[in-house]
Structures are given as structure tokens and as C-alpha cells.
């Protein structure tokens, strides 16, 4: 049972900028929570505070009820996997993994057993004698993961661990890491700016912006029901159209849509897959470009005032550049003052 509890943590850098601003989060036992946000959102600073590499300006961090806020990294029950993997290049794989166990004064025989078991776990059995620079990028990242896992930390911290790997490897490794994490049932905090990584791995995601939580929840829920325009624009592709509502009618350029909310400015959010196109005598938009991805197509559209929209279509060959089309949104959400005020 390992529970991470972050309460009202604030980190202010010299100069007064709030890297993290009164942030709270509870991570349940065995849960994998993804901190997702653009660079500068404070997600890495937060992770480094949990690991002990940064000191919070205020707030408390507890692990299983024990206050670790002011403990140095070497006395915290956390294990961190760095983006640059940070393997010790002057040691071979075995020594990299054994270093932490040796510090704990474990007998040599036991160390050997543990290291071999964890190498087996990450799929690198028999690689103990290799020097780290003889390994591929993916193997190095696996060793870095093993180095943390071998110490059986209560909380596993992953700081954009796949950022330096190519797309193919990244997808394979995140499946592997997810498998291992679930098999060991280890409580995990994962930082990434890649939304597909967050959506595919996390039990829960926390979307961060400017050091604060924008939205927290299950990946599918956050994707389907973003509560702020920032989340709507950050997770997945989203058409965000700013316009005016008058008498229950949203208007932007020639495009209108019935919206039963009070009069005033509003931002309409439509997923490309929820925006259907039909041929029309009174076109609302012009096709700018059609891209055929094989399995589906993506149509770029321009409203009369130049606003660019995207629509996902099943048959891209039905559309060509310059063609006038009508827009039929199937599902929309509307935002005003950074709050969701309508959802269909």
C-alpha cells in the first residue's frame, strides 16, 4: 500500500514566477497518474519536488502518511527515471543496477539475484556485463527503469522517459512499462507532454497549465469532455471557434449553430471527427486542402473570414480544393470565461 499525497504545494522561483501554484493531488495505491502539459506548465518541477530534487516554497508532500517534504532524495522512498536516462557510463549494466543495493549493504549473493531478476523483468536478461554505451536507446531506457525498480520504491517517478526515442520504440516501450507497472502494482507518477502517451498509459491524467491543474480525470473522460478551452485545445485535435451568441444562435462569419445559452461571446469546440461535411447550395466554408491518410481523410476548411477548421471524413475522395460545403457538427461544447457552459 503506497499512497502519494500532495497538498497545496507551491514553488516560487527567484524572480517571483510561480512554477507550481498551490497544487494538490492524491495518487492511490498502484495507480498510474500522468501529469500532462506544455513545457513550462510546472509538471517537471512538481515531479522533481516529489523526488526531492527541488524544495517546495510551501505545501506538504507525504508518502504513506510520512511527511517527506524536506527529506533529501536519498532518504525518500521514490525512484526516478530521467528523460536522458542518466546511466553511469563508467559502470556496466550490472554495476548500475547494483549501486543502490550496495549502498543498502545487501549481501553480494542477494544483489546478484535481485539484479538478474529485474533484468529479466525488463527483457534484458544476460546484459549485465555490457557497458551502457553498447546499448541502444531503448535498452538504455530499460536499464534506467530497472535501476529504479530494483530498489522497490514506493513511488515510481517517470520524467518524460521516452522523449529521446523514436515513435515506434516509444509505443512499444510504453506498453512494456504499463505492463510492468501493473504487474508490480507500483504507484506511479508520469510526466509527459505527449497526449497520446498520457491517453494510452494513464489511469488518470492531470492536465497542467501555468503551475495549476486545468482538469483531472480518466483519460477518456478528459478527452470527451474537456472542461476548459485550454484542455480542449491541448488534448487531441480540436476546432476552437470564437464567436457571438444572440437569441440562442452562435455565429461566426457565415457559420451559425443553435446554442441554447445566454447572449454574449462564446468559444465553440468541435472535434474533427464530430464535424460532418455536406454538399450545399449555400456553402458555409470552402475546402482548402484534402489529406488522405488511407484509413481516413482530413479536410482543412476556411470560413469566409479565413478561420481554419478541420474535419475528419471517411471518404476524402469526395472533396476537392475550392469546393463549397456546409458544416454539420454532431457534438459540440461551448466555453465562456474559461468555463464550460454547454455540452451536447
Amino acid at each position: 500500500m503506497s499512497v502519494l499525497h500532495i497538498a497545496e504545494v507551491t514553488k516560487t522561483f527567484s524572480g517571483g514566477t510561480h512554477a507550481v501554484n498551490s497544487f494538490s493531488l492524491d495518487v492511490a495505491d498502484g495507480e498510474l497518474v500522468c501529469l500532462l502539459g506544455p513545457s513550462g506548465s510546472g509538471k517537471s518541477t512538481l515531479l522533481r519536488m516529489v523526488g526531492g530534487f527541488e524544495q517546495p516554497t510551501s505545501g506538504r508532500i507525504t508518502i504513506d502518511g510520512e511527511d517527506v517534504t524536506h527529506l533529501p532524495p536519498e532518504r525518500r522512498p521514490t525512484g526516478m527515471v530521467f528523460q536522458s536516462h542518466a546511466l553511469w557510463t563508467h559502470m556496466n549494466v550490472f554495476k548500475n543496477l547494483a549501486f543502490g543495493l550496495k549502498l543498502r549493504r545487501m549481501p553480494a549473493g542477494e544483489i546478484r539475484e535481485k539484479v538478474e531478476a529485474v533484468l529479466e523483468l525488463v527483457g534484458l536478461a544476460g546484459y549485465g556485463d555490457r557497458m551502457t554505451n553498447q546499448l541502444s536507446g531503448g535498452q538504455q531506457q530499460r536499464v534506467a527503469l530497472a535501476r529504479s525498480l530494483v530498489l522497490e520504491p514506493k513511488i515510481l517517478l517517470l520524467d518524460e522517459p521516452f522523449a529521446s526515442l523514436d515513435q515506434h520504440l516509444r509505443e512499444r516501450l510504453r506498453e512494456e512499462v504499463r505492463d510492468i507497472q501493473q504487474r508490480l502494482g507500483i504507484t506511479t507518477l508520469f510526466v509527459t507532454h505527449g497526449q497520446d502517451e498520457a491517453l494510452s498509459m494513464a489511469d488518470r491524467i492531470v492536465v497542467m497549465a501555468n503551475g495549476k491543474t486545468e482538469q483531472m480525470g480518466r483519460p477518456d473522460v478528459v478527452y470527451r469532455d474537456p472542461k476548459t478551452p485550454f484542455v480542449a485545445g491541448f488534448i487531441g485535435t480540436m476546432n476552437l471557434v470564437e464567436g457571438e451568441v444572440t437569441n440562442g444562435q452562435f455565429t461566426r462569419s457565415d457559420f451559425t449553430f443553435p446554442l441554447p445559452i445566454a447572449d454574449g461571446p462564446a468559444t465553440l469546440a468541435i472535434r474533427p471527427e464530430a464535424l460532418d461535411l455536406t454538399a450545399s447550395d449555400t456553402p458555409k466554408a470552402t475546402v482548402h486542402r484534402v489529406t488522405d491518410y488511407g484509413s481516413h481523410g482530413l479536410v482543412d476548411l476556411d470560413l469566409a473570414d479565413g478561420t481554419r477548421l478541420k474535419s475528419m471524413v471517411a471518404h476524402p475522395d469526395l472533396f476537392r480544393t475550392g469546393q463549397g460545403v456546409d458544416l454539420k457538427p454532431r457534438a459540440v461544447a461551448a466555453y465562456r470565461n474559461n468555463q464550460q457552459i454547454f455540452r451536447s
Binding site: 523526488g51 526531492g52 530534487f53 533529501p72 532524495p73 536519498e74 532518504r75 521514490t78 525512484g79 526516478m80 530521467f82 542518466a86 546511466l87 553511469w88 549501486f99 543502490g100 549502498l103 543498502r104 534506467a144 535501476r147 529504479s148 530498489l151
Partner: peptide, 9 residues
């Protein structure tokens, strides 16, 4: 930092 993380002073 990784060394601090695994328990080194």
C-alpha cells in the same frame, strides 16, 4: 541526481 535518487549521500 540519479545517484542521490538510489540512496547515495
Amino acid at each position: 541526481e540519479a545517484a542521490r535518487d538510489v540512496g547515495a549521500s
